[in-house]
Design a protein around this nucleic acid. Structure first.
Length: 585
RNA sequence: CGGGCUGUAGCGCAGCCUGGUUAGCGCGCCGCAUUUGGGAUGCGGAGGUCCUCGGUUCAAAUCCGAGCAGCCCGACCA
C-alpha cells in the first residue's frame, strides 16, 4: 500500500476521552473510531491486524482438528428458552422483535446454536469427537462499556465448542484447546498467565483463563513466580501460618458487654477484646439458588482479619448470586446489628424469626478454639468460642480473599503477588449442561443413549490487539509484535521530490513485496520528521529510510522496538528485512 | 442502576459565573511562496444547528426546566 492513498487518520493530540493506553493509541494511530459507547469501527490498519490475528487463530484451531463454521448472530428466543438463558442473561442480552412480533436476540455466545446443530446431526459415538469453531461478532449490552475496545457491546470472538462422548474425551479436547491457546497467544507476542477460574454462570466444572498482566485489566489474579501457580482471585488460595490457640478455661462461650464496639478493629483495642486473628467475622448474605432461584440466608464466617470473596461464597453454596443482607433483614434474622453478629445460637435465632439459615465457615477457622465473636445482641460479644463445638457450621469452604505477600499454596518457598489482569481467553469444561437441557445425545458403543459432553472455548480478538499495545508501546506510539503488525515494514522516502530517492523507494517497495512481505510505502509529500513520527506512532516493526545516502547506494534500517538504526546496502536490504520480519511470524 | 464530570469547527480547548456588535485560540484542512532527516515558516483562505427541545427576556453559547449523548468511579459482567 501507498501511504498517500491509504486511510491512516493519525492524530497529533491525545483524544480527550481516551484514558487507557491501548484506547489512546488505537485512536491516535488511526486504527479505530468510536461510533457509540462500547461500539467501535475498525479502520483499515486495524482490519489488517485483525486479519493476521484471525489467521493465527485459524491455523491453530485447524491444527487440533477444528472445523470453521459461521453461525447467525440473530437468534430466535426458543433455543435460549431451552437452555434457560433467555431469563438468566437479563439486561445483558440485546433483544428485539421481528415484524410478526416474535422475540429474537443478538447472540452473546453460541452454546445454544451449536448445540441445536449437534442434537440434530450427532447420533453416534462414532461421529465424536467434534471440534467446531467460528470467528464471529458477539453482542452484550454491558452496563458500563469502558477502556476503549477492552469492554464493549459488540466485539469479535473466536468461540469453539467440543463434543465428546465422555469425560475422558472432554479432558483431551480441553487439553488440545489449552495448548492451541498457548500457541496462539505466544505467536501474537503476548506474555500471559493461565489461571484457574470460576466457571460462573457458564456452568460446568473446570475453567482456565488466559490473562495478560496490565493495569488496564479488570480482573485480579494471584501468581507465584517460584512455581508458576496462578489463579484468579475468585479461586486463589494461600498457605497461612498456623495459629495455636491458648486453651480456654471455659466449657461454653461467655458473654461480655462491649459498648461502642462496632467493628473487628474496635474489638482489637477494647479492654478484654481480642486480636483480629482471634475473632470470628460473621457476614449475612442473601443467596439466590442456582437451580430454584429461591433466595435464602447464609452466614459466612471468616477469621477477623480475612476479607470475604463473594464469588467464592456463591460457588461454595451453589448460588447464582449473593448480595449482602440489608440492615433490617439482619436485625429481623438475628436480632442485632452488624457489628455484634455471631454464629453461636444463630440457627435458633433464625428459627425464632421463622427463617432458615445456612452457616458456611472459611477453612481458616477449622480447629480454632477460644475465639471471640458477636453475641447477636447489640454491643455484646462472646469469648471462649470453639468453632466446631459452639457453631457447628453446615459446611467448610474456602471463602477468603488472598493478598499479596501470602505464601504460595503450591510450593514451599514462593510468595503470592496479586496483579490486575486482562482476560484474553477462557476455556471451560461445560460437561452436559447444554446437552441435557437442549437434548443433545448420542448412542454409545453398547447402545446406551448418553448426553454429549461439551467444552466451550473463547478468545476476544480485539482484546488481543489491545493487550499487545498495553504490553508493547512507548512514548512515541505502538510497537507491534511482528506477527500481528498491520505491515511488516514501511519504506520511508524522506523527500519524494528527489527523483533518485523516489525511484529507489518505489523499487524497494516492489522488491520487498516480491519477497513476501506486507509493505507500506510512505510516498507522501511531507517532511521527513512527519513521516518518522507517524511510522513510530503506527508501530510498524521495521522502517527502511531512503534518504541522502541513496547516492552511495545505501539506506537505513530502523528497528521500531530498539530504535536502532543501521546502514544497509541497497543490494542486501531486502534479504535483511525478510530475515527479521519473517522470524516473527 | 447509583455517584461525579462533560457536550462550542475534524481534534484539543477558552468564552458561560456577571445575557448585549461579526463566538475565539492552538493543531489539522485548502491555496501560494520559501523550506525539506524527528510533527517547518510566512502570507492568504475555508470551516460553527454553540447536543436537542421547551421556557424566561427587547436580546440566550451564557439564565431556568426537561431530554439525549459521551467519559470516569462504583454495582454488574457469558
Amino acid at each position: 500500500m501507498r501511504w498517500s492513498q491509504f486511510f491512516i487518520p493519525t492524530l497529533r493530540e491525545d483524544p480527550a476521552d481516551a484514558e487507557v493506553v491501548s484506547h489512546r493509541l488505537l485512536l491516535r494511530a488511526g486504527f479505530v473510531r468510536q461510533l457509540a459507547a462500547g461500539i467501535y469501527s475498525l479502520l483499515p490498519l486495524a482490519q489488517r491486524t485483525r486479519a493476521r490475528i484471525e489467521q493465527i487463530i485459524r491455523e491453530e484451531m485447524n491444527a487440533i482438528g477444528g472445523q470453521e463454521f459461521f453461525l447467525p448472530a440473530l437468534n430466535p428466543r426458543d433455543i435460549w428458552e431451552e437452555s434457560g438463558r433467555w431469563a438468566v442473561m437479563g439486561d445483558n442480552m440485546f433483544r428485539l422483535k421481528d415484524r410478526k412480533g416474535a422475540d429474537l436476540c443478538l447472540g452473546m455466545t453460541h452454546e445454544e446454536v451449536f448445540t441445536a446443530i449437534a442434537r440434530h446431526e450427532l447420533r453416534s459415538y462414532k461421529q465424536l469427537p467434534q471440534v467446531w469453531y467460528q470467528i464471529q461478532t458477539k453482542f452484550r449490552d454491558e452496563a458500563r462499556p469502558k477502556s476503549g475496545v477492552l469492554r464493549v457491546r459488540q466485539f469479535i470472538m473466536k468461540d469453539a465448542y467440543s463434543f465428546d462422548v465422555d469425560q475422558a474425551g472432554l479432558d483431551k479436547s480441553f487439553e488440545d484447546q489449552r495448548q492451541a491457546y498457548i500457541n496462539i497467544f505466544t505467536r501474537c507476542g503476548l506474555k500471559f498467565s493461565i489461571v484457574e477460574a470460576s466457571s460462573g454462570a457458564m456452568g460446568g466444572s473446570a475453567s482456565n483463563e488466559f490473562m495478560v498482566k496490565t493495569d488496564a485489566g479488570e480482573d485480579l489474579i494471584a501468581t507465584c513466580d517460584a512455581c508458576g501457580y496462578a489463579a484468579n482471585l475468585e479461586k486463589a488460595t494461600s498457605k497461612l501460618a498456623a495459629i495455636t490457640d491458648e486453651p480456654s478455661t471455659l466449657n461454653a462461650p461467655e458473654e461480655f458487654p462491649t459498648p461502642g464496639v462496632r467493628t473487628i478493629e474496635d474489638l482489637t483495642t477494647f479492654p478484654g477484646g481480642a486480636s483480629a486473628e482471634r475473632q470470628i467475622k460473621t457476614l449475612v448474605y442473601v443467596a439466590t439458588d442456582a437451580n430454584t432461584n429461591e433466595p435464602s440466608f447464609v452466614l459466612a464466617l471468616l477469621r477477623g482479619d480475612h476479607p470475604l470473596h463473594e464469588t467464592k461464597l456463591a460457588d461454595a453454596i451453589g448460588a447464582s448470586q449473593v448480595r449482602p443482607a440489608q440492615p433490617e433483614e439482619i436485625r429481623d434474622l438475628l436480632g442485632a446489628s452488624a457489628g455484634s453478629l455471631g454464629g453461636v445460637g444463630a440457627r435458633a435465632q433464625a428459627q425464632a424469626a421463622k427463617q432458615s439459615i445456612r452457616i458456611v465457615a472459611d477453612r481458616a477457622l477449622e480447629g480454632r478454639t477460644n475465639m471471640t465473636t458477636g453475641a447477636n445482641k447489640d454491643e455484646h460479644h462472646l469469648r471462649g468460642v470453639d468453632v466446631e463445638r459452639d457453631i457447628k457450621p453446615d459446611s467448610w469452604a474456602d471463602l477468603r480473599t488472598v493478598a499479596s505477600g501470602e505464601r504460595c499454596p503450591n510450593c514451599a518457598a514462593g510468595t503470592l503477588e496479586v496483579f490486575k489482569a486482562l482476560e484474553i481467553g477462557h476455556i471451560f469444561k461445560l460437561g452436559t449442561k447444554y446437552s441435557v437441557s437442549m437434548g443433545a445425545s448420542v448412542l454409545t458403543q453398547d447402545g446406551k443413549e448418553v448426553p454429549i459432553v461439551m467444552g466451550s472455548y473463547g478468545i476476544g480478538v480485539e482484546r488481543i490487539m489491545a493487550a499487545a499495545i498495553e504490553l508493547h508501546h512507548d512514548a512515541d506510539g505502538i510497537i507491534w509484535p511482528r506477527a500481528i503488525a498491520p505491515f511488516d515494514v514501511v519504506v520511508t522516502v524522506t523527500n519524494v521530490k528527489q527523483a533518485e530517492m523516489k525511484d529507489a523507494g518505489e523499487r524497494l517497495y516492489t522488491e520487498l513485496q516480491r519477497a513476501g512481505l506486507e509493505v507500506l510505502l510512505d510516498d507522501r509529500d511531507e517532511r521527513a520528521g512527519v513521516k518518522f513520527k507517524d511510522a513510530d506512532l503506527v508501530g510498524i516493526p521495521y522502517r527502511v529510510t531512503v534518504g541522502k545516502k541513496i547516492t552511495g547506494g545505501a539506506v537505513e534500517l530502523f528497528d521500531r522496538a530498539t530504535k536502532e538504526t543501521t546502514e544497509v546496502g541497497l543490494d542486501e536490504v531486502v534479504r535483511r528485512v525478510q530475515e527479521l520480519a519473517l522470524a516473527g511470524r
